[in-house]
Write a protein that binds this DNA or RNA. Structure first.
Length: 877
DNA sequence: GTAGGGTTAG
């Protein structure tokens, strides 16, 4: 496609001089810079040089003597022409009111605008006010111009509202400025107001006001204005048509944009560029590239913006090939020295996955702007090299380039990705010192950084102080709470949000994990309704989170139903379902799903292997477990992590392969943690291997000396073997350490209310009824020969005493309450924060049999479905 | 008309 360019390089690829609208200079590709001819520069060039101007300055500022007749006006205007704002304002302040002419004020205001010096502009304004000069007419317009240029739109508007406004120029200026600061409503209001006042809009007015309509995304308004400006005869102005093209593209009316372009007889390079960028920003980058080829074929003069637009389109298509050839041609055409081009090129390489290409562009750049540094940092973060991004940020500071809002958000993102709270706080200090803390982007990036660095208190502080909270702010906080294991806070904030703002699909994807974590089925179903009403079901984040919610709320059937409805299942969908089957004890279904996923051509990753190995372990599938572990290593080339080893040890231990598990741990290439040894210790208890248990326990105690659970576990192993002396020794050992216990708690939702129980707690209003029900059940169990397996609850963490038959564990209390408070036929769903106790597990089986009720108990490890006296876990827990 | 930034699922 670039053949055309090659055949006529001068026409297509030569770098034209172009105007830099910001600095009012004309840049010539070889690097020379010429000032745009103006009254000021013509004055300098008419003098014999700068030195003359300097001597002129001192003569002009010399103290006036009484015999001089000073024409202050002429002197001030001369300073203005020379660009010496300081001397001009100084002289103005020395002058008498009566001496000053209107044109003098005007000149100095123009210079303030040019220098963007708000401080000087305000001084001049106060002199004008003090002198009582009339500002209703021409001078007022200059004041507005000055304030707009110096960035004080509020003051500009104040003056603007006071003066007579028949000049369309000022209206255009104001409308355009409102468009720039994205206050589109105000821009449109002004447009309507000017028409009420009978001021005729011109082509510039339409260009400006269309920016407002465009970003409001109002396609209808676009059509109206389109008809209106045709009626007024502006349809053939290509500036107007170009704005119209942009307006239609921004309101996603691609066809309308194309029609305006097709009907435009006098297309300039801007028309073509608008088409390329318009297509690209509407996800139709290929069409943009087609326009570019058409442009080349017609021999249209191409400028820097064309190159930039095409590179952006390349990023969208994600192909490096075209980007690379544009790079090659840019070198020939002398674009390669242009900073805007290089920045886009750098970003193209980085976004197309060629970080090395991006680095090369960055290193070859002679001039680097803040954009270059920021893009490079973002590139490093994209590749997971956050520390490198942080290093680059410090290098940028050493090069005295000041970070802007974009840099700050990028570097915060780097801190978030590397979990570096310390660096993040440093950036927060910078933000405060430089008054950037009211910017929405910055605040959102700050909250995200704090959330990812696990400091939700800091995130909340930022959130709380935000003057305006957009939907991203709410989502960031809700998602932050969910991810930091604060599901109650997430749900609370979600409720608050619903009062103030409308949740979107991201909100839903953020809040569902909180429902999953709490097993809050009712709330999850409510959100499911919201998803259906708003058509979010097609969003892969939403649907995956929804399936996961049903899995973790214990409704596997619904999860499976929804999973089957996902048209294109991705890795996450499959992983959720595999893990779901696993935690509900359907090991072979998990394996089938996993194989099906691979058949569908989806490569499993680390996390999906954790899910499948976990599924094997919870169904005791030793051979399958080994097979999959080897597939992971040999076929998928995934190096097993601690979690994978942990699943395997768990699998071997639960199935009684204790010495194999021990050997497996011994040959692990990475250091086993307490969880891994702990799994084996659990296995020792199930299979009563006291000797191995002692060996293993010492390892666990070394690794986690403060964890009570492991001492209790060993004590129970001794107790079951009736080694009371050892139990005593262990008790003394624990007594010396003064261990803390992790309190067990269970909860159940009845009629939308969460009822929380802790072990031994009788404070529940129904406490008495619960206790007598449990007593009756216990008695019936004995009668029917359902022997309570007291050995499960021999030793209690609280007192290390042999426990009496009635154990007051929280899950038992919750299940009993469930039976008492729900109608027959209803499934009883209980969630526990720790693993279920063995005695409670036996009792639950009996409860399900005697009451004819289905009980679904989720513990910290898996699900137990109790029905007709059996449990789905078949002993693997 | 043109380069860089913030939120989502296992």
């Amino acid at each position: 496609m670039l053949m055309v360019a090659k055949s006529s390089p001068n026409l297509f690829w030569a770098s034209p001089p172009y105007r830099d609208s910001k600095s009012d200079t004309v840049k010539i590709p070889n690097g020379c810079i010429f000032f745009k001819p103006s009254s000021r520069t013509s004055l300098l060039s008419s003098n014999s040089g700068c030195s003359c101007a300097i001597t002129g300055t001192s003569a002009l500022l010399a103290e006036p003597t009484s015999c001089d007749i000073i024409d202050y006006n002429a002197k001030i205007i001369k300073f203005c022409e020379m660009g010496n704002l300081k001397n001009a304002t100084e002289l103005l302040s020395w002058s008498q009111k009566s001496e000053l002419e209107l044109k003098t004020y005007c000149s100095i205001l123009e210079l303030c605008a040019e220098h963007k010096s708000l401080a000087d502009g305000r001084k001049v304004h106060s002199v004008i006010c003090a002198n009582g000069v009339e500002t209703a007419g021409y001078l007022g317009a200059k004041l507005v111009f000055m304030y707009v240029n110096c960035g004080d739109l509020r003051e500009a508007r104040r003056v603007f509202d006071k003066i007579s406004n028949e000049k369309v120029f000022l209206w255009n200026l104001m409308i355009n400025e409102y468009a720039k600061i994205r206050n589109f409503r105000e821009g449109i209001d002004l447009f309507n107001k000017m028409q009420e006042l009978g001021v005729q809009p011109n082509s510039y007015t339409f260009s400006s006001v269309m920016k407002c309509f465009a970003t409001l995304g109002s396609g209808k308004a676009g059509e109206n204005i389109h008809g209106y400006l045709y009626k007024l005869g502006f349809g053939s102005y290509n500036t107007v048509a170009n704005s119209l093209v942009a307006l239609y593209f921004k309101s996603r009316r691609v066809e309308s944009a194309r029609k305006v372009f097709d009907e435009l007889s006098d297309r300039d390079v801007i028309s073509w560029n608008s088409m390329i960028s318009g297509y690209a920003s509407n996800g139709l980058a290929e069409k943009g590239i087609q326009i570019f080829i058409e442009m080349l074929g017609l021999g249209i003069y191409m400028d820097l913006a064309t190159m930039v637009n095409v590179l952006v389109a390349c990023v969208d298509i994600g192909t490096l090939r075209l980007g690379r050839s544009l790079h090659a041609h840019a070198i020939k055409a002398c674009f390669a020295g242009e900073i805007k081009f290089c920045n886009t090129l750098l970003d193209m390489y980085s976004k197309c996955g060629d970080l090395h290409g991006a680095i090369q562009v960055f290193e070859k750049m002679g001039d680097r702007s803040v954009v270059s540094w920021t893009s490079m940092m973002a590139g490093y973060v994209r590749e997971g090299l956050s520390d490198e991004a942080i290093r680059l940020f410090h290098e940028m500071e050493r090069n005295r380039v000041s970070p802007d809002i974009f840099t700050i958000t990028s570097i915060l993102h780097a801190c978030a990705c590397s979990g570096s709270l310390e660096n993040g706080k440093e950036i927060h200090d910078y933000i405060r010192k430089n008054s950037m803390d009211s910017n929405l982007f910055v605040c959102n990036a700050l909250m995200d950084m704090y959330a990812k660095c696990r400091s939700m208190e800091d995130a909340h502080l930022v959130f709380y102080n935000m003057p305006v909270k957009d939907i991203i702010a709410w989502n960031t906080m809700i998602g932050g709470y969910s991810k930091n294991n604060l599901p109650n806070e997430a749900l609370k904030l979600f409720a608050e949000m619903q009062q103030k703002s409308k949740p979107d699909r991201v909100t839903v994807a953020c809040v569902l994990p909180a429902c999953a974590s709490l097993a809050a089925l009712g709330k999850g179903q409510e959100i499911h309704g919201h998803i259906l009403r708003n058509g979010y079901f097609t969003d892969r984040y939403v649907v995956n989170a929804l399936v996961d919610m049903y899995v973790k709320c214990g409704v596997l059937v619904l999860a499976q139903l929804l999973f089957d409805m996902i048209p294109v299942k991705d890795l996450i969908s499959w992983t959720v379902m595999v893990a779901g089957y696993g935690m509900h004890g359907f090991g072979s279904e998990a394996i089938s799903a996993f194989d099906e996923m691979r058949d569908a051509g989806i490569e499993p990753d680390e996390v999906s292997f954790i899910s499948i190995l976990y599924a094997c372990s919870h169904s005791g599938l030793v051979d399958e477990g080994w097979r999959l572990f080897n597939i992971m290593r040999n076929e998928c080339k995934i190096e097993p992590k601690l979690e994978h080893y942990s699943c395997m040890v768990d699998l071997l231990s639960r199935t009684g392969n204790l010495s194999k598990a021990y050997k497996f741990i011994k040959t692990m290439p990475i250091k086993p943690d307490a969880t891994i040894w702990g799994s084996l210790l659990c296995g020792c208890r199930i299979y009563h291997d006291v000797e191995l248990a002692e060996k293993v326990a010492e390892r666990v105690f070394e690794l986690e000396p403060e964890n009570t659970g492991y001492y209790v576990l060993l004590a129970n192993i001794y107790a079951e073997a009736e080694k009371w002396e050892e139990v005593m020794k262990l008790r003394q050992r624990i007594g010396r350490k003064g261990l803390k216990k992790n309190p067990g708690c269970s909860w159940i939702v009845i009629k939308g209310k969460v009822n929380i129980f802790v072990a031994g707690d009788s404070s529940h209003p129904q406490g008495g009824k619960i206790e007598s029900l449990l007593k009756r059940l216990r008695a019936r169990m004995k009668e029917e020969g359902f022997n309570p397996k007291i050995r499960y609850a021999l030793i209690n963490a609280d007192d290390m005493e042999k426990e009496v038959a009635v154990c007051g564990h929280s899950e038992k209390l919750a299940m009993a309450f469930g039976i008492l408070s729900s109608s027959p036929g209803q499934v009883i769903r209980v969630t526990k924060n720790l693993r279920v106790c063995g005695d409670c597990h036996e009792m639950a089986k009996f409860m399900s049999k005697i009451s004819g009720r289905e009980i679904v108990l989720r513990d910290s490890n898996r699900f137990h479905h109790f029905k007709d006296g059996n449990c789905s876990c078949r002993g693997f827990w």
